[in-house]
Design a binder for these strands. Structure first.
Length: 299
DNA sequence: AACCGAAACAACCGCCCCGTT
DNA sequence: AAACGGGGCGGTTGTTTCGGT
């Protein structure tokens, strides 16, 4: 717009040539100094944009275009209940997955759940203002409170207190449910973070994202109502979550983090990926030829 | 075959923290 | 000690693809 502006910052989809430049830069200097890519005139992208492109698309061993497996779904759901929306941290438990992948996965699932629940509610509560027919999941009207906005109470304290001693999510205890929620938990409750506020109306209901039958060693909870069970049973691709009720298969044998598990050095947000970068291990451990195939833009 | 809604994917924005000067 | 810049993260939004009618 302004002619005096030094350089236009390019935005939008990346071209194969840009990818190649970025890959070459990383190959030479490692995944760091993102801002220097622009200052050197290699790309008209911000450092942030370069970093994001590398982390989400160009990094080796990513599972691009590959749907989440049942095991990955379980892991995400369980870890979300443990850590809250700490996508980067959750992603460290999922080799080949990025925080963006996890975030998108979670967003899709929770929105679908919200829609189904709303539809269900509408069938017997016509007063609801939610009108799925008239709005997509990205409805500008924001009738739907995204489920991901829910955060388990005292996440950070739990991380330092509980995950320092064990990586396995702590079995549900009703003591851990925030008092402010308690009155809403009558139909069903479960673990610390697994509750989701489906709607911001006065009829808001706490809704489980997965069944109480899933968490091993969990103390018995208030059972799902028949309606709720029926509703949740429609989540056929939460199959691992709802699972056969008589299944005795242990469902949550959480994988070890792909990177260093992260009792956070100082705070939760600094996960091991950073540390690896700083120690060069992250980069240097890659096979020498890993950059050879420049990812071609998918058709 | 065309249309429409949902889902998946990709990228940007704003905020925050940390290290450096 | 304060200011500043870089980098990381979570949230959000735009676009494309997929699937059902």
């Amino acid at each position: 717009m302004e002619a005096g502006r030094k350089e236009e910052i390019k935005k939008g989809p990346w071209k194969a040539e840009e990818d190649e430049v970025l890959i070459n830069h990383v190959k030479r200097y490692g995944p760091r100094d993102w801002s220097s890519i622009r200052s050197k005139g290699l790309l008209q992208r911000t450092g942030k944009s370069c970093r994001l492109r590398w982390v989400n698309k160009l990094r080796p061993n990513l599972k691009n275009g590959c749907k989440f497996s049942a095991e990955e779904e379980r892991t995400v759901i369980e870890l979300q209940s443990e850590f809250g929306n700490k996508w980067a941290r959750i992603a460290t438990y999922l080799p080949g997955r990025t925080d963006n992948d996890v975030k998108n996965f979670w967003s899709s699932r929770t929105k679908r759940l919200a829609r189904i629940l709303h539809n269900n509610n509408n069938s017997d509560a016509s007063s609801s203002s939610f009108t799925p027919k008239s709005s997509s999941h990205r409805s500008k009207g924001k009738n739907v409170k995204p489920l991901q906005s829910f955060k388990p109470p005292q996440v950070e304290e739990e991380i330092t207190a509980s995950s320092s001693s064990s990586k396995i999510p702590v079995p549900y205890s009703s003591d851990r449910v925030d008092e402010t929620m308690r009155s809403d938990l009558q139909p069903f409750t479960f673990g610390t973070g697994g509750l989701a506020l489906a709607e911001t109306t006065t009829t808001a209901t706490m809704t489980p994202l997965f069944s109480d039958s899933l968490i091993p060693n969990q103390q018995p909870l208030a059972p799902f109502s028949p309606d709720s069970r029926d509703l949740l049973a429609r989540f056929d691709d939460f199959y691992g979550i709802l699972g056969p009720e008589d299944s005795s298969e242990p469902l949550f044998a959480l994988p070890q983090p792909f990177f260093e598990p992260s009792p956070p050095p100082r705070r939760y947000r600094h996960v091991s990926r950073d540390d690896d970068e700083h120690s060069d291990v992250f980069f240097d451990d890659f096979p020498a030829d890993m950059f050879d195939p420049v990812p071609s833009p998918s058709p």
